[in-house]
Every structure is written in C-alpha cells, then in structure tokens.
Amino acid sequence: MKAETLERLNALRADKQPCALVTDLKTGLQAIVHAGGTHGGFALFPEDEETVLRRIVEDRSGIVEEGDQRLFVQVFAPPLRLLLVGAVHIAQALVPMAALAGYAVTIIDPRRAFATDERFPDVTLSDAWPDEGLAALAPDRRTAVVTLTHDPKLDDPALLVALRSPAFYVGSLGSRKTHAKRVARLLEAGLTEAEIARLHAPVGLDIGAVTPAEIGVSILAEITQALRRQVSAAPAGG
C-alpha cells in the first residue's frame, strides 16, 4: 500500500467518512472510494464505482469479479448511533431493538424522573438540555436522531441542531396536526424549508403501529430504510 493511500484512508476514517479501499488483486493497484470521489492508483469503471458505493452503504466487504478483473473491496463504515430525545415509554421498547440492529444508543432527557438507570439499564443517558446534549454528541453521517417527548420545549431545540447536522435520519414523534404547528415554529426559528424537509414526521413507517413496541418497529424500519437506501439519494461521486 502506498503511503499516500494509507494516510488518506486513515484521515477519512478519523473523519468518520464511510469509505472503501479497492485493491486490484491482479496488479496490486489500489484506489479509495467515498461519496466525495475516487482517488488512487487506477481508474474504476463507472459501474464498478457504483458497485463500491453501494457496498459502502451496505457495509459489505468482499471480492467483486467482473470479466477477468478481480477487485477486493474493503469497506470502512463508522459505527452506527441512535440519539433519542425523551426517555419515554416508546424509548424503552426502541432501545433494545436498535441495539440488536447494531446501534449504540444514547438517550437525552433533562427530566430526571424519566432518564433513570432503572428505566434504562445499559444505555448511555445524558441529562443535558437537548440542543446542548445533541451538539456535544455531534451527529455524523452514521447517526440517526429521533425526538420522542411531544414537548416543543424539548423537541424543537433538538431538531434545530439535528436538521443542520449530517445525521442520515431525523424523525419526530407527533401527529400530522402537531407536525404542521412544528413546521411553523421551526421556520420561525430560522430553519430553511429544505432543512425541514429532511424531517421524518410523523415518525416511522405507516404500518398501523399501536403499542410502544410496534411504534418502535415502525421507527427502526424507517431508520433502516434511510440507511440502506442512501445510495440512490447520495450525490454522484466527483
């Protein structure tokens, strides 16, 4: 591996940018692929580059064979995180499901009666105010943020931070009616329509969920969809 390739790869990983190292097993030439472009010792065919970008989203390393070409694609994906605002009943159902799906979960709730270790064993709890708590955790491209409090005092400040972050998913619990009011407040607070359009609300896929556990399923399903279908929405490399 060339020094330049190794240094670039380590810099991208330090910056938590999902990326892949592509090695041509016949020639030993290597290239680095990420959403911002392709760098390195050989030019990938556009269809191979697409394959690699898809594998980055799927977090799937392995060999890609095309004709007499044999490429090894090693994906480097930063860990997945789920940041929940509101240590409520739905969070109690959602946390173990998200952990199973591979997310490191943090719950932010300044209300001490809610965010207790008894209610949430084995979860990182933050009693910071939601905007400060979220800003400190710096949501990245591998982070999902969901607000669950129903309380504009707590949800709105969190959304102001989350919708301007690179988080791949931002969702907010609440009916269509409360969402319309929320949009008006967020516009008032200075968010653009494009920023607000990133918000998934009402949160979760529409599967008719009723119980907290079912709502957890619908939220996790929508987060999964956002994570795995990013490639079609991602800007073209270059």
């Binding site: 591996m1 190794l6 240094e7 790869l9 977090d59 090894f72 090693q74 994906v75 480097f76």
Partner: peptide, 25 residues
C-alpha cells in the same frame, strides 16, 4: 464494521518510523 481499524493507524506509525512492514488482509 469489519477489520481492526487500529491496525491501519499502527501501519501508518510503523511506516513513518522508517521500518519495513507488510499488511495481511
């Protein structure tokens, strides 16, 4: 996430120190 990312940081450190090294994957 696959692999052990720390190994690549170690690799960079080794290389900067001027020693020869090989990486197996």
């Amino acid at each position: 996430m696959t692999g052990e990312p720390d190994i690549l940081n170690e690799a960079a450190r080794l290389r900067r120190s001027g020693r020869k090294a090989a990486l197996a994957t």
